[in-house]
Computed example of a mutant assay.
Amino acid sequence: MWHGDMIEDVWGWRKRPFCHPISNFTTRKSKVQELASNQFHIVASLFNKIDHNIAVVHSVIEGNSPGRIFVDRVEVPTVAYLIFEGAFHYIGGTPANDAFNQAIISFLFEQFLPEQAEKELVLFAFTTAWREKLDALLHPYGAITIHRKIFRFDYARFQVHAGWRERIPDGFTLKHIDAELAEKHPDFKSIVDANTKRFGVCLMRGDEIAAVCSAVCVGGSEAEIDIFTDEKYRQQGLATIVACAFIEESLSRKLTPNWACWPERKASVALAKKLGFVEQFDVPAHLWAEDL
């Protein structure tokens, strides 16, 4: 994950070491079962009508991103709890299974979060019924509600940037991130891992990385955008150029580029709109952190 300031860090969260499955969670097996990665596909139908975080959720289900999935039962699950690498969590299916709901919350606070280097979670639901259920389940732990801005890509609006290549400044080179480049810049190694289906582009000045736009994850026929510009190259329009290159690459792969960010990242919101993304709605999420 590339880290930027509030100007161009779209995701705006720190990538954390991912916790491996905890073997003693089998004590709750009658209420909650953790799926093996080759079983993840069985929960796809529980998330097939979601209207945000599509790339993130389906990147885990499709095996493109590290993650964990818990269900009430393996045979035709009715509820699923999905953890994307880091602190982003998602729940789908029916909210009516109180035994599962209590068990998964207990697991999070008694086992999962204590194992994390940074004890924090951001939990997204996709229905009002689930959000109300989570209000009650998480209230005793002091969780609060926050919001994330969601955008929809509009190809017609993007066409205003058809001549973006002509705006690449002298001395800069646009490059696709590949294995050769990753050897020189180790931060790119996760992007070129074929198992993730991730990809990206960057603007370079000599051997120096000036700006990067990459897919933080790919799933559900969407590519989730992450963008970063080195501090000394900001305010030069490089983010717009590298984002245009990424968007065209996404479309060539038959992927819809997706943009989401936190509301306080005003410059990120402005850049999204400039690129042809249309603001949709703010998605509520439950936030819990040890130091909240």
Rank of each mutant, 00 (worst) to 15 (best):
W2L: 09
D5M: 13
D5L: 10
I7L: 13
E8T: 12
D9R: 06
W11E: 14
W11D: 08
K15D: 06
R16A: 09
P21S: 12
F25H: 15
S30G: 10
Q33W: 05
E34Y: 05
E34Q: 14
E34V: 08
A36G: 07
S37T: 11
Q39V: 02
I42T: 13
S45V: 07
L46C: 11
L46P: 04
D51E: 15
V56H: 00
S59L: 05
V60Y: 03
V60W: 02
V60Q: 03
G67H: 03
F70S: 00
V74Y: 04
T78I: 09
F84R: 04
N97G: 04
D98C: 03
A99K: 10
F100R: 04
N101R: 04
I104C: 12
I104L: 12
F107I: 15
F109A: 09
E110M: 14
Q111I: 02
Q116S: 12
E118A: 11
K119D: 02
L121I: 15
V122K: 15
F126K: 07
T127Q: 10
W130L: 09
R131E: 10
E132Y: 11
L137P: 01
Y141W: 14
I144H: 07
I146N: 10
R148W: 09
K149V: 03
Q159G: 06
V160M: 13
V160E: 14
I168L: 05
I168W: 08
G171P: 03
G171I: 08
L174A: 02
L174C: 07
H176Y: 09
E180T: 11
E183T: 10
E183V: 04
K184Y: 05
H185S: 11
P186K: 14
I191S: 01
V192R: 06
D193P: 02
A194Q: 08
N195G: 12
T196N: 05
T196S: 15
L203P: 04
M204A: 08
D207H: 10
A210Y: 03
A210P: 01
A211N: 07
C213F: 04
S214G: 07
A215M: 12
V216W: 01
V216M: 07
A223W: 01
E224C: 07
E224H: 10
I227H: 00
F228K: 03
T229N: 00
T229C: 12
Q236F: 08
I241K: 02
A245I: 01
F246P: 01
F246D: 05
K254I: 01
K254W: 01
P257G: 09
P257L: 00
N258H: 07
C261L: 03
W262T: 02
W262N: 07
A267E: 14
A267D: 10
A270P: 04
K274Y: 03
L275C: 06
G276P: 05
G276T: 04
F277K: 11
F277E: 01
F277Y: 13
L287H: 14
L287W: 05
W288H: 11
A289R: 15
A289F: 05
D291V: 11
